[in-house]
Design a protein around this nucleic acid. Structure first.
Ligand SMILES: [Mn+2]
Ligand SMILES: [Mn+2]
Ligand SMILES: [Mn+2]
Ligand SMILES: [Mn+2]
Lengths: 219, 219
DNA sequence: ATAAATTTTTAAGCTTACTTAAAAATAATT
DNA sequence: AATTATTTTTAAGTAAGCTTAAAAATTTAT
């Protein structure tokens, strides 16, 4: 399967999981920066290959085969991110960009070696779960967005759901990183802002940020 | 530049260096497993891009630009081989196969990070020199093939010039590996065989092998 | 030097992955 | 419910990177 197909299938998978949940060709096209026409075309070709279920004007769905494909690519992506993050001094944004390419040129054997080397990690540096070699995600995600965290409580950062450079730069500059502890000092309900305390600093975040920073309770 | 172009340019570079020294389209085609027609076609396109000098029926030559390209890809290939060999339990044949793909999806930034992580190595696990970031090979290769080594002398293995799985399997099974010491017990001139001693074992190698195993004098 | 064999080039055609422009269907608004 | 706006699909076309088959040039052998 080509790089174009792999990215297409992965985009359907990811958009199916995200809360917008829009897997129509037009949306996939937007994500991949191609025309809707190209996306429709690809969808029809993948339907013939039994990777996608295509019905005119309907959202795209992955077949069992398509789902396996997507999870295999996601696994490779997240393993690469984990390895690059561990070995090199690179930002979350940079490792994501590199992994976006490397994921398509990685044999199953190499993926196993990377996983083994890292001690078969269950999460990547963004906090995203890494599917196992059978394409299964066994972990259960109990995390909530910062916007829903309780005032006064302490949490551990579990996910940074983004691929935006500026966001990651901001996070990195302020200690907002997987595994670090934050305390919610105030939730400004009407203005949808959240005031947190991290590393003895106080930061007020708007909802753009508090909706993509996920945390787990700190027990 | 596409993967096809990068592999093409690299093939011209490598064939220009090898002793057969045949960079005509037909030979490049054979190396890349494509038709001669495809190779001629590509040569003409790359001439238009100022990467290759193309004259009908003549060997292909790289321009300065093409040479830089080739060295950049070779650098990435050899850095990947070095990294994979260091981190994982993979054969020389396997790391070569993986590097053949990864080399095309590696930013200059990532290449720098890999190089730095490895302590800016000058040779890869096959003993091939790694060009620096400016595309220069600064080391001088003083090694000679085992077939030309002197009876009774001791040498250090410096290069294994091949990409054949069976060859690497044989080498690995017999301790024939970059950096190891061999002693030449006998050169059978007329039959072109060489008897060596390595790890207290005696092995007789034919010229297929002694021409691709290179060594340096052990001072 | 000629003829035969081999290699290279040209020509025509295919698939993949795109594009833009128009037509058709769906979704939103009044 | 009808109109309008938006989205999706179809249609036609392009570039890259291949293929095979035939023509042209070079190389080798006689
Ligand atoms: Mn990522
Ligand atoms: Mn990708
Ligand atoms: Mn190699
Ligand atoms: Mn390659």
């Amino acid at each position: 399967m080509s790089v174009a197909i792999e990215n297409f299938v992965k985009a359907i998978y990811k958009n199916g999981k995200s809360k917008t949940n829009n897997t129509k060709p037009g949306n996939i096209a937007k994500v991949l920066n191609i025309s809707s026409a190209a996306a429709t075309d690809m969808a029809q070709k993948l339907a013939a290959k039994n990777v996608v279920i295509y019905e005119k004007y309907q959202p795209l769905k992955l077949t069992e085969k398509g789902n396996k494909m997507a999870l295999s690519i996601v696994r490779k992506h997240r393993l690469w991110e984990s390895l690059l993050f561990k070995l090199f001094d690179l930002s979350l944004h940079d490792i994501h960009k590199e992994a976006e390419l490397l994921e398509h040129q990685t044999s199953d054997l190499l993926a196993e070696k990377i996983s083994e080397y890292l001690g078969n990690p269950k999460f990547d540096p963004h906090g995203d779960p890494i599917p196992n070699a059978d394409g299964e995600i066994t972990t259960i995600d109990t995390s909530i967005p910062l916007s829903k965290a309780q005032e006064g409580k302490s949490y551990i950062i579990s996910r940074l759901i983004s691929s935006d450079k500026e966001f990651f730069d901001f996070c990195s500059a302020n200690g907002l990183k997987y595994g670090n502890t934050v305390t919610i000092s105030k939730q400004f309900i009407s203005s949808k802002m959240t005031q947190i305390s991290i590393n003895n600093n106080t930061i007020v975040l708007n909802s753009d940020f508090t909706n993509i920073i996920y945390v787990n309770e700190n027990n």
